[in-house]
Simulated scan of single mutants.
Amino acid sequence: MALKSTIYKADLNISDMDRGYYADHSLTIARHPSETDERMMIRVLAFAIHASEKLTFGKGISDTEEPDLWEKDYTDAIQLWVEVGQPDDRRLLKACGRSDKVLAYSYASTSDIWWKQMNSRLDRAKNLRVMNVPAAASQALAKMAQRNMQLQCTIQDGQIWMTAGEDSVQIDLETFKAD
């Protein structure tokens, strides 16, 4: 019998002063049995950074044809495709062909090694941005994971703060590839 996803709920308050976006989102997050708390929280972070009315979680890890997050317009054209982790170059290049903009968020301590292998293969992708969440920040985010979460995300001048109760983490993203 296959293991089922674990459902997490998050009330996410976003104050993104850089974009002028202020909203509350009630998220239902299906955590695949093979997914870690760290990866799930990076998905939540990516949602907070790119939040909009049309941004939704995709099937991601359980479906090779869908990203972790995506935003479609009213014609079903993909405007934003977000991958989390260390996807292979074929997956990212295929996403670049299907979407207006593609973002990848790596987060493991091996991200530098992964990027050195991928860099030359992804050079030609003009609509791809690759960001890295430092290991200390991603591990601190993982500690915030609860089945029911109250999260506050504040973004100002490119700096990101995620807060859950008394716990807070500052996330300074590293740019591996700018679009």
Score class of each variant (00 low, 15 high):
His32Lys: 08
Arg129Ala: 02
Asp16Trp: 04
Arg129Glu: 09
Asp73Gln: 10
Asp76Ser: 12
Leu27Phe: 03
Thr75Tyr: 12
Ile49Tyr: 12
Ala48Gln: 07
Gln146Met: 10
Val84His: 12
Arg98Phe: 03
Asn127Cys: 02
Leu93Asp: 04
Pro134Thr: 00
Met17Leu: 12
Asp172Thr: 00
Arg31His: 02
Gln170Phe: 04
Leu27Ile: 00
Thr56Ser: 14
Leu27Lys: 03
Phe57Val: 04
Ala46Gly: 05
Glu38Lys: 14
Glu35Asp: 14
Ile7Ala: 00
Gly20Thr: 08
Asn13Met: 06
Asn127Pro: 07
Phe57Asp: 08
Arg19Met: 01
Ser120His: 13
Gly85Asp: 04
Leu151Thr: 04
Met40Gln: 11
Ser109His: 11
Leu122Gly: 01
Val82Thr: 01
Asp167Ile: 03
Ser26Thr: 02
Cys153His: 05
Phe57Met: 08
Ala140Cys: 07
Tyr105Cys: 03
Ile14Ser: 03
Lys126Pro: 00
Arg98Cys: 01
Ala10Thr: 00
Asn13Lys: 15
Thr163Leu: 05
Ser109Ile: 01
Thr56Ile: 15
Ile160Arg: 09
Leu55Trp: 09
Arg124Ala: 01
Phe47Leu: 07
Val82Phe: 03
Glu71Cys: 02
Ile160Tyr: 10
Asp63Ile: 01
Thr36Tyr: 05
Ile14Asp: 02
Lys4Met: 06
Met17Thr: 09
Arg129Trp: 04
Arg124Asn: 03
Arg121Met: 07
Pro134Ile: 00
Arg90Ala: 06
Leu55Asp: 11
Ser109Gln: 10
Trp70Met: 03
Asp76Val: 05
Met131Phe: 09
Gln117Asn: 10
Ile78Lys: 11
Ser26Lys: 12
Leu122Ile: 00
Ala95Asp: 07
Ser111His: 10
Thr154Pro: 13
Glu66Phe: 10
Tyr105Ile: 01
Ala142Ile: 08
Met41Ser: 01
Lys177Cys: 03
Ile29Val: 04
Gly20Cys: 05
